[in-house]
Design a protein around this nucleic acid. Structure first.
Lengths: 233, 233
DNA sequence: CCGATGAGAATGAACGTTCGCACTCTTTAT
DNA sequence: ATAAAGAGTGCGAACGTTCATTCTCATCGG
């Protein structure tokens, strides 16, 4: 059951630096497998998709596929990890915006948009369900969650210190709650039921403003939904 | 593949009204099976739990179990339907409260509480994931979702008419968005990571208030987080 | 005695994974 | 330059297991 963890290919430095074929080909094959696996998992779920299905989708025999991934589980983990990396990118947008309200609003909406366009929303649900019982998957998810919590928490902490916002709750509690709500927003795939992402902007902003209670000069923000805070907790 | 849909037991009227043993015994067996199935699905997921596991959990042989449920799929559907019924109960609380803000706030929190206490949160994730690919499951979920949307939508509509609230968005858009956020809140199982349900109260209220923008006399509400609306969309 | 119920072995399919073999490059030896 | 060796890669049959479901037979209440 214990394979060496050579899922990822060796670094190119292991070969002549100008030799393209071997290393690049291997990377391309890995990509093909992951893409096929993603499609199958999307259609049938982690447990429902068979290795046969995945082989077919990747245009490859089982023998060949197993040269790249030692088990079905390793495939699932690779897919999850890739998904979490995509999340991290979005995160950057959120915390680097000049206004924390704008950053979080557009960050959440981009996340939803990306998930919808890439058709990954169902996979998200799958990952969550799998994490509920598979400890290895749980770890991947928790690590990612932890990292996100810290980065957002730090950004909010700065905003609090500079007097930009005055949250309804201590940050340790507020951040997970906002993330949970955001998680619901992006997994529900609202565009599918006729609610375009852009429509959600005022609602998302209202939620964030409601929870962060920015001082007036920060709260004006964009299109609609003006709210001003009146009291400190 | 096409069995008669006699998943649920025949109504008691089909037997002598004073005959307890047959009908009651059958109902008890069904309950035992469903409880065992629930535990197994919780632990291993719909696809991961085997009929053998479920038989063992229900203290029953496969031959016996199949006298009550014609397939594994019918078991899954029964579990989902039971779950959706539990949701409907919570819904009553929400719309019958004198203040729509209070009703929705406490309704959401009760839902989260119940899901956490009954340990059903992981099943929720499982149901969602399954619905993403199984059309029959999708139907069950959509029907429930549709019903909830209507009831909440109607309650909000009344509140708008009476001038109690002035939502940031048209209701057809707002309701699904709020439900999505609520869904995220209850499935994330925040108590598990150290955030007790009651802590979430101000945050949930802030979200709801932010989105519904009640007039001042309704907005005062409980503990914290006072927000007042200033403009119409 | 009959229909409902239960146990548990049996069945056939599907699954994840492995194996043996063939083929193709790349490197090394001649 | 050519041959031999070796590693990487691919195929698809085969293996052992597990699974959902069915079958057969026994039991029991009415």
């Amino acid at each position: 059951m214990e394979y060496g963890s050579d899922i990822a290919v060796e670094t190119p430095q292991g070969l002549r630096p100008d030799a393209p074929s071997r290393y690049e080909r291997r990377e391309a094959q890995v990509a093909r497998i992951l893409e096929g696996a993603r499609l199958c998992f999307l259609k049938s779920g982690f447990q429902g998709a068979s290795m046969g299905d995945i082989c077919a989708a990747a245009g490859m025999s089982p023998g060949a596929l197993y040269r790249y991934f030692p088990s079905k589980e390793s495939l699932i983990e690779a897919i999850c990890a890739a998904d979490k990396e995509a999340d991290a990118k979005i995160l950057g947008q959120m915390v680097n915006a000049p206004s924390i309200i704008d950053g979080m609003t557009t960050g959440l909406l981009s996340h939803a948009q990306q998930l919808h366009e890439s058709g990954m929303a169902p996979l998200f649900a799958e990952i969550y369900a799998e994490a509920m019982r598979n400890p290895a998957m749980k770890q991947i998810l928790d690590d990612s969650m932890c990292e996100v919590t810290e980065v957002i928490g730090a950004a909010l902490h700065n905003a609090v210190k500079s007097g930009e916002i005055n949250p309804v709750l201590p940050l340790e509690q507020l951040v997970p709650i906002m993330m949970a709500m955001g998680h619901g927003l992006v997994t529900e795939d609202l565009p599918r039921i006729g609610i375009p992402i852009q429509t959600m902007e005022p609602a998302v902003r209202a939620m964030i403003v409601g929870m962060l209670r920015p001082r007036e000069k920060y709260a004006e923000a964009s299109p609609s939904s003006q709210v001003q805070k009146t009291l400190v907790t």
